[in-house]
Amino acid sequence: MAAKQAGARIVSDFILETRGLTKHYGGVHALTDASFTLKRGEHVAIMGDNGAGKSTFVRQITGVEQPTRGEIIFDGNAHLFNSPIAAREAGIEAVFQTLALADDLDVPSNLFLGREKIRWNLGPFSILDRRAMREATMAALVKTGVKIPNLSNTIRNMSGGQRQCVAIARTAAFKSKLVIMDEPTAALGVQETAQVENIIRTLKEAGEPLILISHNMRQVFDLVDRIVVFRRGRIVANLAKEDTDGQDVVSYITGAKTGAEFEGAA
């Protein structure tokens, strides 16, 4: 385990908590003082305009980048994931907006990118277990209902939707404690969107917590329990689904309104 652990185990019903999470890219304050909580089994949507800092937030939690400041408490432990592997080993699976697929590799290689199944361990020259990866890929695709018959096709030759499906199947194929999806249905057609939404519902039934980033209001209201709104790098609203509606959320996104507890933030 590469994750640094600090402090004692805190008993908590939160699977994820961030305190004052901040990320600056040089002079760009992409994320400022984001304090966020996610209960076990809860599904939360993050909404906000383009460039609001949603993906930046995800990159800090998943160890892709190191935050400038702030704390991440995952599953009761304070963590600073120094690599995506560390976050993944701790149990966070993510579909990134950029999909993070290797275009020249086939489907199984992409599904197992960074955690290949090994037949003989010879360090960096370990022999891959190609058949096992292929079979596991089949199983994952069947489980998620994604149809890609030619697994040896490279990702480059696939449609945008198929690529997205591969990225989603990748999170669904592995056991995890938290799933994060950054605009998973952005490129998908009607049927495929429904498919992904079904995958998300299955996660809900299984009690797996989820952070969903989406611009699709209908989808958000269909799927999640709570909506968190980002604006210009800050969290400006934290709304239970029952207490809000589309109009309300839009006014938070555009800046017409700011949540009471976030006054003075943005």
């Binding site: 690599s83 993070a100 275009d103």
Partner: peptide, 15 residues
Amino acid sequence: YAIGSNEAAARMSGI
């Protein structure tokens, strides 16, 4: 092959 075809993806995948 993974790094050559998409270095950012390879990094995000933990390589």
